[in-house]
Computed example of a mutant assay.
Amino acid sequence: MKPILFLSLLATTAFAQVNPNISEAMDKMVAAKEISGAVTLVADDQKTIHLGANGFSDLENKASMEADNLFWIASMSKPITGTAVLMMQDAGKLSVDDPVSKYLPEFKGLKDADGKEVVVTIKHCLTHSAGLAEVTPQESGDIATLKDLMPLIVAKPMQFAPGSKWQYCQTGINTAARVVEVVSGEAFPDFLDKHLFQPLGMENTTFYPTEAQAKRLATAYKRTEAGELQKTGLMFLGNKPITSHDRYPRANGGLFSTAADYEKFARMILRGGELDGKRYLSEKAVKQMTTVQSGDLQTGFTPGNGWGLGWCVIREPQGVAATLSPGTFGHGGAYGTQTWIDPVKKRIHLLLIQRADLPNSDGSDIRKAFHEASAK
């Protein structure tokens, strides 16, 4: 890391101290070859409490992990998408209870397996209860816009009646993002840049990293049968570089970010929608999206949870989340990245790793070790 960049990073994190318990826990995970390295962060509503970088961002080149390394945050994109939707609700442009068809005509006339017409709401999309089918990477091919993705979604049969069950659904989140595009008149990446990322100072959060940002990308790894870490790619890129714009902005999981960037977003949410004197969301909107909106539906990926609007909400802390408070909310990503905001203890927990083949990234031993070390 260049000295001037290092000083800048320290300035943004208020000279955070490294928590030795967290550092030791991550070092053990590196030594056990569970991960190549990690960036961990704990913060409150005012400052960074811990910022650590352990292990390597690239094993082959023995490149040390740095606090400003870029990560594919995958489904940690979903809370950002939920936030964009609620920003539009605050602006009077939509209600999450509105039918999607009010804004996307192609969703009119959706029918279930019995031929009965069904109505999918924006809330259904954000709580994974819409019943929409997934679109595979092969089917989406070279589609480069959310607009062009929508006909593929509605062409597929409904999986179940909207609101009747919880089933993790990428197409629902992308549909909600398309609604944001229609009501705002802006492409989703432009909307996020203009209304969220730039005002918050999230200069390294993007669907399409620059060449300079790509050089700071932490390498993704999977475990071999022999227990070694083997370099692997990012599942959604195909053979395209991460700098390519020739793919649609995956609101469900296409963002790249850094610890310092995501901390700013999380702190704004922890503070009820305000940061540094600027209000991004009403307190009512923050409350709505970070409390259970999925009713009594049984949700995944770990027990004791419900679902808000783009956020997982912990009803009953247990297992990997045992040290967190009831009402903690957050989201995990496919390659093990995690963000959790505890509104009782006023703590932000951020874990950035790139492990491709975890059986359950939300229920990983790495996440458990991080939370437990943070609580010491």
Rank of each mutant, 00 (worst) to 15 (best):
F6P: 03
A11H: 12
I22L: 10
K28V: 06
A31Y: 12
K47M: 09
N54H: 13
G55R: 05
S57L: 04
S57R: 15
S57V: 04
D58F: 04
N61I: 06
K78G: 07
G82R: 05
Q89P: 05
D90P: 06
A91Y: 01
L94A: 02
D98L: 00
L104D: 02
E106Q: 13
A113W: 01
G141Q: 10
T145E: 13
T145D: 10
D148P: 10
Q159D: 08
T171C: 11
G172K: 07
N174D: 14
E181N: 11
S184K: 05
D190R: 11
A214C: 04
E228Y: 00
Q230C: 00
K231M: 02
M235C: 00
K240R: 12
I242G: 03
D261T: 00
D261L: 01
Y262F: 12
K264R: 13
M268E: 01
I269F: 00
L270T: 04
K287Y: 08
M289R: 05
L297N: 08
P303W: 04
P303N: 08
V320S: 14
G330H: 10
G333T: 06
Q338C: 07
I341Q: 05
K345P: 07
K345M: 09
I348N: 08
L352S: 07
I353M: 07
R355V: 13
A356H: 14
D357S: 09
S364W: 02
A369T: 02
